[in-house]
Design a protein around this nucleic acid. Structure first.
Lengths: 246, 246
DNA sequence: CGTATCCTTGATTCGCTTCAACATTAGTGG
DNA sequence: CCACTAATGTTGAAGCGAATCAAGGATACG
């Protein structure tokens, strides 16, 4: 406790700095002037670190802020009274969490870190305020919400019309694409979630997910070992999606 | 053309008037002062009438405005390249359509009138402008988008974890609740969509929907004749949802 | 190093889809 | 207004894909 009053230099970065953030185009700061970025900086509260398995917020929590993922990996999930659970999304660096709370002032889902993570806390009242002053910020925020709506449409399509292997193919291609956007390899990555979480997200049981992985491996579409995935034939994986079996 | 300059008195109402609209609390105008309402009035462009089966917009159309349903009934749907289709929502009076277009400046789904309908056209650029000036409008708009996200979560849960009869029960209760909000009977209403559209929305085939309807009728949960539905035992219908079979 | 978690694989069951036939309703033009 | 036709809805039988049940194996973690 004695050391608390002397802040080590390395902790200065705990205060967010959109100005220097590498997640520009992904986040809310795209297209803002230097001056506007500075305002956004002062709006963004301290960052918050989370250990693996820690909750960022829970369903029922009062809504106060939205969060931008700086590092790490999250899932959001919803629970039914009878205990059934559904993962509604996975979020990685540059993506925004918490907008589900705006409508009712209460979060409607849980957000859990799947690995040690860090988020920028964006107090919502201040975001509203500032986005009345900065048009580009307003626009970015609206775009982020709208894209989330479109993402949800895609997921509904997946859950409503696709068979197990199509769902997994869509999932893998989506992961690949998002890793690419962040400058990582499109062909090789580590999943942060379990088979059960993938299954929950895709509306499948974990055994089915596992079988689909094995099938893809047999077919030389991917090489998979536990959470490590290498995409061997993205083209054929993509064809799995666009051509219905019947 | 000669008649254009003399506007018949009955057509005055073609221009929207949030001030007198009965959909206050449902729409964007909740909590606005008289003066602010007047501004919103001037923002809202003319209304637009649609015949049954007409498109309000199509996937790929440039995004220019969002729409508030004044009267009638809509569906939104998404198409996959291989022809598979999924209904992503049904919209009734007071609900907002078109927000899917904000993120990419292009609509990502089709919006079709399921009966003769009328919408208020809200040019988006002007909505952005005005919601920078009127805090209550900004807040309402954000809430509408956020609630849509939460609705989508619920639908994912439905598609991912529920069996056929649970899905239909959830659907009927949702319809009932929304009709109630609009001052109609909670127990008796006319569906505007076909079994196939219901099925598409619920991720089921039309035969399965039909069978579930018949089953509910046998069990005296509802009385159904084609599109007309009467809920006989809402309580038991609700219990179908909250208690998983296993 | 031991234990809990996660993953894989096989056998069986079950619920929904598919295919098919028929009934009913709505819409159209004579 | 009625006859005709297309669209929509219902029901049955068979097939299939994913869930369930079960056992064993791999991996991560304290």
């Amino acid at each position: 406790m004695a050391g608390k009053s002397v802040i080590p230099i390395s902790l200065v970065s705990v205060k967010a700095a959109c100005t220097q953030c590498s997640l520009h185009e992904l986040c809310l700061s795209e297209g803002l002037s230097q001056e506007e970025l500075a305002s956004l900086d002062s709006l963004v509260g301290a960052r918050r670190k989370l250990k693996r398995q820690q909750f960022l917020y829970r369903a029922g929590d009062p809504f106060e802020a939205i969060y931008a993922v700086r590092t790490g990996f999250f899932k959001t999930d919803v629970l039914l009274e009878d205990g059934r659970e559904q993962v509604t999304g996975f979020q990685m660096a540059g993506e925004i969490l918490g907008m589900d709370g705006i409508g009712t002032d209460t979060h409607s889902c849980n957000a859990v870190a799947l690995e040690d993570s860090e988020v920028c806390v964006i107090p919502y009242a201040q975001l509203e305020q500032l986005s009345r002053e900065i048009q580009a910020l307003q626009r970015n925020f609206h775009k982020v919400m709208s894209r989330e709506l479109v993402r949800d449409q895609g997921l509904m399509m997946l859950l409503g019309t696709m068979r197990a292997e199509e769902r997994l193919a869509a999932f893998l291609l989506n992961m690949s694409q998002r890793f690419t956007t962040r400058g990582y390899s499109a062909a090789e990555f580590n999943l942060r979630m379990t088979r059960e979480e993938i299954g929950s997200y895709l509306g499948l049981k974990l055994e089915t997910v596992s079988r689909a992985f094995s099938r893809f491996q047999e077919e030389r579409l991917i090489a998979v070992q536990q959470k490590h995935v290498r995409i061997l034939d993205g083209e054929r994986l993509r064809r799995l999606l666009n051509h219905a079996p019947r």
